[in-house]
Amino acid sequence: MSYPFEFDHETVWDAGYHSGQLYASLAQGAAGFLDVPSGLTPTPQGGCAVDREEFQTLVERLYGLYVSTSSEVLRELAHGLLVTSLVLLDRVGGTIALRPEDAAHLSEAKSTLAGSMAS
């Protein structure tokens, strides 16, 4: 059983059921914490539709939190959600600006994770 994430009627991430549910829940929670919409809307088929503009705003705000905190715990909590979100954002044609000091590390993490995220 899967939990597909769709954009423009195309599956951009065919997540496993539990992985997809957990990611969607974490993204919704982060969106509430950051006071922005998540850009993820549950579908009747049991997945999520992605609104690129809203989702991009969420990822920008999540990245802002990631780079601005001095709390190692908060940074690590944000890291996994951020990397997964960056892969999904790429797949829907969105992008955010990364600071030069973060670009290589996050690009490598994204590339590694993307291979595990079936589309």
Results as ranks from 00 to 15, higher is better:
M1E: 12
P4K: 00
P4H: 00
F5Y: 02
E6V: 07
D8A: 15
E10Q: 13
E10I: 12
V12L: 02
V12M: 03
W13A: 02
D14W: 00
A15C: 04
A15D: 00
G16F: 09
Y17T: 13
S19D: 14
G20C: 03
Q21H: 12
L22K: 12
Y23G: 03
S25E: 15
L26T: 15
L26R: 14
L26V: 14
A27N: 08
A27I: 05
A27D: 09
A27H: 04
Q28A: 14
A30T: 08
A30P: 01
A30S: 09
L34M: 11
V36P: 03
S38A: 10
G39V: 01
G39M: 05
L40Q: 02
P42D: 03
P42L: 01
P42E: 08
G47I: 00
C48T: 00
V50P: 04
V50I: 15
V50F: 02
V50Q: 02
D51I: 07
E53N: 11
E54S: 14
F55N: 14
F55T: 02
Q56A: 10
T57Y: 10
T57C: 07
L58Q: 00
L58I: 09
E60Y: 01
R61L: 04
R61W: 09
L62T: 05
Y63E: 03
G64M: 05
G64N: 12
L65R: 13
S70V: 14
V73H: 11
V73A: 12
R75H: 08
E76K: 11
L77Q: 12
L77M: 13
A78L: 04
H79N: 10
L81Q: 11
L81F: 10
L81K: 03
L81R: 07
L82F: 05
L82K: 01
S85W: 05
S85C: 10
S85R: 02
L86R: 00
V87K: 04
L88T: 11
L89R: 02
L89G: 02
D90R: 14
D90G: 03
R91A: 06
R91P: 02
G94C: 06
A97V: 13
A97K: 08
L98F: 02
L98T: 04
R99S: 15
R99T: 08
P100F: 01
E101K: 13
A103L: 04
A103H: 09
A104S: 10
A104K: 12
A104M: 13
H105S: 14
H105L: 14
K110T: 10
T112N: 11
L113W: 07
L113P: 04
A114D: 08
A114R: 08
A114C: 04
G115S: 06
S116P: 02
S116M: 15
S116Y: 15
M117C: 09
A118G: 05
A118M: 03
A118T: 05
